[in-house]
């Protein structure tokens, strides 16, 4: 069942088209990640959904109610949509507890504040602290609790983890996912971090220049992006020229299985570096001539030449070849991508 749907939503600022006829639908209880470079329109998209701005054209609906479009516009404070902003945006003049209670109605606020603090894995004693006395991660948790306090149906996350360091970021992400799942809240995360988007969402939306380039299951987008550009945006990619025939592609890396539906003839085939293994050389296998290997701890970046083409991949340091020749093994299937 669809909770939120955007139809033909556009927004321009003067000459700049921030969003161009965007269609998007978000399922009840789903987690959607919107990823794009800066200036791709992802923050505008979030602001339109939150109700801080109105679209120039198109329609936004939530649970059967028109939020924006036609003549109607529901302002932010009546939408019941939660928001967790970059760096939390806690009110600096209020304690953590008062921040959480800020949007609450009714009684027993102290008890509920304590509950919420526990729900975001914080000590309820922190309620007395002022925002500047909290660490970045704690501020984000308070911001999450503040938004959860309103029991919104939909919660928006505007790069909420970008100010945190890497370990904390993964931890927070898991906590947010768990909270949203437990409360049955639908979530939309905006980020420029592909890995974060891939790991957070069950629907991934890629924005570029105000348009949705592709949307769908994160695994599918990662493995089978429509374009080479998108392939590279979502992660390290090896895109090789190939001749496709009979469910196989002949490439510089040897034979690669491709999907049955792949058209025969010349094609560009996407392989992810993790699909490539370099194993000790044995006769009859496609050969890689190791050009350099630079050790980076758990992984080693290996540069090699095969059939005249040069490739760079990250290998597990446990098995990375250091010099000489190696055999290339390709795991899984390749996927044809359009050049653009």
């Amino acid at each position: 069942m669809t909770l939120l749907s955007l139809t033909g939503v556009s927004r321009t600022y003067g000459e700049v088209v921030a969003l161009d006829r965007v269609d998007l639908s978000v399922k009840v209880g789903g987690l959607t990640a919107v990823v794009g470079a800066s200036g791709s329109g992802k923050t505008t998209l979030l602001r339109l959904i939150a109700g801080f701005e109105a679209p120039d054209a198109g329609r936004i609906e939530m649970g059967g109610t028109v939020l924006a479009g036609g003549s109607g516009f529901v302002p932010a404070h009546r939408r019941g949509i939660g928001l967790v902003a970059q760096e939390g945006a806690l009110f600096p003049h209020l304690s953590a507890g008062a921040n959480i209670a800020f949007g609450m109605e009714g009684s027993e606020q102290d008890r509920r504040v304590a509950e919420l603090l526990r729900a975001v894995e914080l000590d309820p004693a922190l309620a007395q602290r002022m925002p500047h006395e909290l660490s970045g991660g704690q501020q984000q948790r308070v911001a999450l609790a503040r938004a959860l306090a309103r029991r919104p149906r939909l919660m928006l996350f505007d790069e909420p983890f970008s100010a945190l360091d890497a370990g904390l970021r993964a931890n927070m992400r898991e906590m947010v996912k768990a909270r949203l799942g437990a409360e049955g809240i639908t979530g939309i995360l905006v980020t420029h971090d592909q890995q974060e988007a891939l790991s957070f969402a069950d629907q991934l939306v890629v924005l570029e220049d105000g348009r949705i380039v592709q949307a769908g299951d994160p695994r599918e987008l990662y493995q089978q992006p429509r374009t080479e550009r998108l392939a590279r945006f979502l992660g390290d990619a090896l895109v090789v020229d190939a001749a496709v025939a009979g469910g196989e592609a002949m490439t510089a890396l040897g034979r690669v299985r491709v999907g049955k539906a792949t058209a025969e003839g010349r094609a560009r085939i996407l392989l992810r570096p993790e699909q490539i293994r370099l194993v000790p050389w044995s006769e009859g296998q496609p050969a890689a001539e190791i050009l350099s290997a630079s050790f980076e701890g758990p992984i080693t970046v290996v540069k090699f030449r095969a059939n005249g083409a040069t490739f760079t991949i990250k290998c597990s340091s446990a098995e990375a070849p250091v010099q000489g020749r190696a055999s290339i093994i390709v795991l899984g299937t390749g996927h044809p991508v359009a050049a653009a």
Binding site: H77, R78, A85, A89, F91, H93, G103, A147
Partner: peptide, 28 residues
């Protein structure tokens, strides 16, 4: 920081209440 006012609105406050409860205290 305009994000504070955005947040107050998304927490259900009318514009006047946002001014009184978020903007004014920070002007103190």
């Amino acid at each position: 920081d305009p994000a504070l006012e955005d947040n107050a609105a998304s927490l259900g406050l009318r514009p006047l209440a946002v001014f009184m409860r978020v903007v004014l205290p920070q002007l103190r």
